[in-house]
Amino acid sequence: MKILVCVTSVPDTTARISFTDGDTKFSKAGVQYITGPYDDYALSRAVELKEQLGATLTVLNVGEADAEPVIRKCLAIGADDAIRVNAEPTDAYFVAEQIAAIARQESYDLILMGRESIDFNGGQVHGIVGEMLGIPSFSPVMKLDIEGTKAKIAREIEGGKETLEASLPLVLGCQEPIAEWKIPNMRGIMTARTKPLRVVEPSGSDSLTKVQKYELPPPKGACRMIPAEEAETLIGLLRTEAKII
């Protein structure tokens, strides 16, 4: 079996978000980059499947050279090799095109990624890749088992979950609790240094969407504190002042 896991390199969840160049660029200064938390779930499940069933596991990142620490960490966790498409991941359609181009050359049985990146939160790439390859896509997947050429899947829906069966190949957007995050061990970190990381140039069309400007939310006004002994007055304030109940 051949598994492809697509990963993003994104600002840490606690990163302070700010912009430069007249609010047209994300300020990377002092920001720690991590593997997308949802991508980490996808990778962890892929490593488990590799151990159970035997598989080759490739990680793919569409990103610039500064994403390589994240790619090396994925190799340390258990991927066999890596591909980086050397381009800024500006738009879901563009990123999907890059992934689909690689997938057409290699015909993977399973293409996994996070349900969404935590920078742009689009959650669209898996679906577009599935469409481009003409194979099913599902998200957010919280359980995945492989039996022969069939996948048994549970995905979260509003207020519950849906279980599905589908034949490989598939594209899946993953989230917890599909697997426990894995932490690289020393041996993994050592071997990751020499595992192949291929850099390829992007193909296909330009981005279909373009960010013109970034904005931060307006600063929050002061919190109005209500003494505990007068808690009931909150309800009146929500009715008459905030007018929301």
């Binding site: 939160n121 669209q124 599935g130 469409e131 998200s139 979260e156 279909l208």
Partner: peptide, 23 residues
């Protein structure tokens, strides 16, 4: 936006070569 709407949007974007912006 919904679990179905998101997936339909993405697959339709792939079919129509449509720019897609979410949220």
């Amino acid at each position: 936006k919904s679990s179905l709407g998101d997936a339909v949007a993405a697959r339709a974007a792939g079919k129509l070569k449509a720019g897609l912006v979410s949220n």
